[in-house]
Design a protein around this nucleic acid. Structure first.
Length: 979
RNA sequence: GGGCGAUUAGCUCAGUUGGCUAGAGCGCCUGCUUUACACGCAGGAAGUCACAGGUUCGAGUCCUGUAUCGCCCACCA
């Protein structure tokens, strides 16, 4: 006899066992066989190596694993490519923070290589933790192909792509205002700027006109940052302003500095209106000081009017004439070296002293602060590398007939630009978002796309492979440089009269040496993290090499991610996939919900409301976590998960969620029911199966299984997750356990019945395990292994043959079994269940002990009566009866309790409790009357009868008929009780 | 400012193309050592479907508006 399942379900044990089966079988690792038609590929959204995974990652990866396991069981050659992202600024920042806290050293206290080494060490630590977490969750990734966005394979792709872009003229050098943190002297990404409300001021500064215009001697500008006035290069006013005609084109003399600056007309300026609800209009004077070097809006105005750009600050935020301010004379000297806030006061004092301060007003406004140093950020001008996203790519026009070189309809996006390459597949339906609404995010972002700044002033990342000339002025390229260029090892471009060289291949030390010898030096910056992420679907597969992986698995099938990176990541992968490989990297983009805590707040470290997946695995088990996560995954954009503290057996107090209880309870039920089933399956002989001997309950459970298989397939094909798992839950628990298994118990002691019940049970259990496997892989694999030992041969001869499989993970996915669909059996079982429930209810109401065997009968139409009589044992077994009889002419016996349900009147013999009975019947009467009134009202409405679909009207008539009969029966019983 | 989502039982959520006396899990109440499971079994109570209009024979479901909560993007002299 085979050993049975252990008595107690222990997730940790089963997780270990199943994992070892999968590892030994190498089931996660597909061969790159060159056959793309039978492949199914997903690339993981590579988690940042900044920190361990949180519950959102657990959800994200559970969903991917469900799909990949489903596809694997369908027989596809599946790959799930794992890996991590170096996450430039985020990782560098956490490491800097840690080093500062632990060693009191700052980044600039290190040599670049040493510092990068420290970040690398952090990366190694967290990468290991992240991969460990993914494995613990059961993710069936191809670990042998694990990649990292900065490893050699990915770096090669980065360099190849960069060189291609550079050669195609899509990379250029441009000026840009960045978020500068003067305290740490680094650039911050937009999302690293925290907005804080500040009680500030509006200062109204009077700038004198060079020549009076009528009575007007001054124009007054309003500013919250007076210190930037040193860099003003214009005063702007709205052309619709009544004073514009007289003033535009005149000059003002900038106080302190003495610079003559023009008054220009620009629509951007808000017209003054003290009565307006618009804050800006209230405070506006109609005159706007324009400081292109220190304000993003002013920068834009400056661009439109070709204004000079004068930077008056040093990188530390102090006033300085060393960074682009050339006309600082002795009048301004007192400000040099002052901190920006000191300078602000000094300038305001100066204006006050000169009688040029018109007014000061209180003003509450939002100011961007560095999330790291918490000082206000400074918009700061710097040189950056950009990718031109709307520039037509000439090399593409020639080779793609579909790209005519025109614009995409209703946009200014050329079809053969990078933006166009990403937008086109969505518009022609090759790229699909699920849920569909997210396509809009993608589309509108691309339609309004601006050039992509790709350089970052960091040390952690892919160093930009561009060498720029050291000396100012035009230079002559040497012979050896020209040779390198002609051989394709370097590309050379000119930006603003400066020469820049891009070196094609990493490790081409000879080229580097030559270039550097000729007076070029490598750019200090690194690439935006998203540059390498954009290549992820093919860099991981060895592009630009023509690898078997690319041949087999590219283009891939689906991408599963969170909505906040649709723009930053998804669109750029499509863009670069098209540009580099010539095809979109995936056809389906599934966007899942964001997990919030019980109060609808984002889970975050600072709030302490996050849940570590490993903790959830400790507290409830990996399968339980996956069950709950998938059962929550509907198409809404947020889901809530109440968080509560719990003490683990080892004494740790941790955050977990009571919602995981559902998953754990289900796994426990699955374990115990399977254990019980298998205790009765010893000696099952498939050859004894005879489909003609199936009883009603067999036909019913097989029909329910057939429907469940069909439903599960439909759902998974449509990326629905909560629906199939919740339906499987109901099927297993409510149909199989609550009914079929209970009915099977006595059959297991019956020589004739045993074999048929065993075969059906073994088959249904087998199929259910397969259907559940993608969702809860560990426990199902474990039970399946045991089932293989106890019932090696399963299948229903003449209905379904089952191939044996050494492991569930590669077992064949259940195909549809249409011949098992049996509506009649389902309806008949429902009648039987109704009868049983009704009797149970009466027993409960009258406090009849479960052990007490009763007699019951039912008055019901001939057809149903036949079904009930043919299967009276089913009723007796689960309703605690010794006898049951149904028939059209059955009368209520003396002393019987009566219940009316649907078209049945059920009598529980010798159970009368007149008081309780009356109470119950009166209550039911109320309900029936209420229902009857509603239906009568409906049918009394001529419009309903005439306009509604005939079958709906007919349904209502039948309903009314049934209610009338019920009411009649109830009243009769009440009368008898009272009589 | 632009876009999107949510609002249904005490809590967390389902509710397909309009056809309901509106469902599930948890929690709550009443029983139960019934040949696996108390992480269980049987039964039960519990809802003005956010609000106001509209379309329709019929609205939780469709349309318009309002409110509240939340997310994304852009911006703030």
């Amino acid at each position: 006899m085979a050993e049975q399942l252990s008595k107690v379900y222990e997730p940790a044990t089963i997780e270990k066992q199943s994992m070892s089966i999968w590892t030994k079988g190498k089931y996660f690792h597909p061969e790159a066989d060159g056959n793309h038609d039978n492949s199914y590929a997903i690339v993981i959204p590579p988690p940042n190596v900044t920190a361990a995974l949180h519950l959102g990652h657990a959800l994200n990866n559970t969903l991917q694993d469900i799909i990949i396991r489903y596809q694997r069981m369908l027989g596809k050659n599946t790959i799930w490519m794992p890996g991590t992202d170096h996450a430039g600024i985020a990782t560098q920042t956490v490491v800097e923070k840690r080093i500062l806290a632990e060693e009191n050293r700052r980044r600039i206290d290190f040599e670049r290589d040493e510092f990068v080494g420290r970040v690398q060490a952090w990366k190694d630590e967290y990468e290991a933790r992240i991969l460990g977490q993914l494995k613990a969750m059961g993710c069936s990734c191809d670990w042998e192909r694990t990649r990292f966005t900065m490893d050699e394979v990915c770096a090669k792709a980065v360099r190849a792509n960069f060189f291609k872009l550079f050669k195609d003229g899509l990379i250029y050098r441009g000026k840009r205002l960045v978020n500068w943190d003067p305290a740490t002297q680094t650039v911050l990404a937009d999302d690293e700027v925290e907005h804080q409300e500040i009680n500030g001021h509006f200062w109204y500064l009077k700038y004198p006109l060079v020549e009076k215009v009528g009575d007007i001697e001054h124009v007054t500008v309003a500013t919250t940052r007076p210190e930037t006035m040193l860099g003003d290069t214009a005063v702007a006013m709205n052309p619709r302003d009544s004073r514009a005609e007289a003033l535009v084109g005149k000059q003002v003399r900038l106080p302190i500095v003495g610079r003559l600056i023009p008054i220009i007309a620009d629509e951007h300026v808000v017209l003054p209106d003290p009565e307006s609800d618009d804050e800006k209009a209230k405070f506006s004077t109609g005159f706007l000081k324009v400081t292109p070097a220190h304000d993003p809006d002013d920068w834009a105005i400056g661009q439109r009017h070709e204004l000079p750009v004068i930077n008056v600050m040093a990188p530390d935020g102090s006033i300085s004439d060393q960074y682009g301010w050339e006309d600082a004379d002795e009048d301004a000297e007192f400000l040099l070296g002052m901190d920006r806030y000191e300078a602000r006061e000094a300038i305001v004092d100066w204006f006050r002293g000169e009688n040029l301060l018109a007014e000061v007003r209180e003003y509450v406004h939002e100011v961007g602060h560095s999330y790291r140093s918490h000082v206000p950020i400074e918009p700061y001008l710097s040189d950056q590398w950009y990718i031109a996203v709307k520039k037509p790519i000439s090399s593409l026009v020639a080779c793609r007939s579909s790209l005519a070189g025109g614009f995409i309809e209703n946009t200014d996006v050329p079809e053969n630009s990078l933006a166009g390459l990403a937008l086109k597949p969505l518009l022609d339906g090759r790229l699909k978002f699920i849920p569909e609404r997210y396509a809009k995010t993608y589309q509108s972002w691309l339609e309004n796309l601006r050039d992509w700044p790709i350089s970052r002033q960091l040390w952690w990342g892919h160093r930009i492979p561009i060498w720029g000339q050291i000396e100012e002025g035009e230079i002559q390229l040497s012979k050896e440089i020209i040779q390198l260029k002609e051989s394709g090892r370097i590309a050379v471009n000119l930006f603003r009269e400066q020469t820049y060289i891009c070196i094609n291949k990493a490790g081409d030390n000879e080229a580097i040496a030559t270039v550097e010898k000729n007076g070029f030096t490598q750019d200090q910056d690194v690439l935006d993290t998203w540059f390498s992420s954009a290549l992820w679907p093919f860099s991981t597969m060895g592009w630009p090499g023509e690898t078997d992986e690319l041949k087999t698995f590219y283009p891939g099938n689906m991408l599963c991610t969170a909505r906040e990176i649709i723009t930053l990541w998804v669109s750029r992968m499509v863009m670069m996939g098209q540009y580099c490989v010539g095809d979109i990297p995936f056809s389906d983009v599934y966007i899942h919900a964001m997990i919030q805590d019980g109060q609808g707040r984002k889970m975050s470290k600072s709030l302490g409301n996050g849940i570590d997946p490993l903790i959830a695995i400790d507290s409830h088990g990996a399968d339980a976590m996956r069950f709950t996560l998938s059962s929550m995954t509907t198409e809404t954009q947020d889901v809530r998960m109440p968080v509560s503290e719990m003490e683990l057996p080892d004494g740790r107090k941790v955050n977990t969620s009571p919602k995981f209880d559902t998953g754990r309870n289900f796994c426990n039920k699955l374990w115990n029911a399977s254990r019980f089933a298998m205790m009765n399956l010893e000696g099952t002989d498939a050859s004894e199966f005879d489909k003609d001997k199936l009883r009603l309950e067999d036909k019913w459970i097989l029909s329910r299984l057939a429907r469940t298989i069909e439903h599960t397939n439909e759902c998974l094909d449509g990326y629905k997750f909560s629906e199939p798992i919740n339906n499987l839950y109901k099927f297993f628990w409510n149909d199989l356990c609550d009914w079929y298994l209970e009915w099977a118990k006595p059959r297991m002691n019956d020589a004739v019945q045993k074999s048929i019940a065993q075969n059906v049970l073994a088959f249904v259990l087998d199929q259910t395990l397969r259907l559940l496997h993608p969702f809860i892989p560990f426990i199902t694999e474990g039970i399946f292994g045991k089932l293989n030992e106890i019932v090696p041969n399963r299948g229903l001869a003449g209905i379904v043959e089952l191939e044996r499989s050494e492991a569930l993970i590669i077992a064949k996915w259940p195909g549809e079994i249409n011949e098992c669909k049996d509506d009649e059996a389902q309806v008949n079982i429902e009648h039987i269940q109704t009868a049983i429930r009704t009797i149970r209810d009466m027993r409960s109401k009258y406090n009849i002990a479960p052990s007490e065997k009763m007699a019951a009968s039912a008055a019901v139409g001939q057809e149903i009566a036949g079904v009930l009589n043919d299967n009276s044992s089913l009723v007796c077994e689960l309703a605690g009866l010794e006898s049951f009889e149904a028939g059209a002419g059955i009368e209520k016996p003396e002393n019987a309790a009566a219940a009316i349900v649907e078209q049945m009147q059920i009598y529980l013999h010798n159970a009368i409790d007149p008081k309780a009975e009356l109470e119950r019947l009166n209550k039911q009467k109320e309900q029936v009357i209420k229902g009857k009134k509603a239906v009568e009202a409906k049918l009394a409405n001529e419009n309903f009868v005439n306009k509604a679909k005939p079958e709906v009207v007919e349904q209502s008539r039948q309903k009314l008929n049934e209610l009338n009969q019920q009411l009649e029966a109830i009243e009769k019983h009440i009368a008898e009780l009272q009589g």
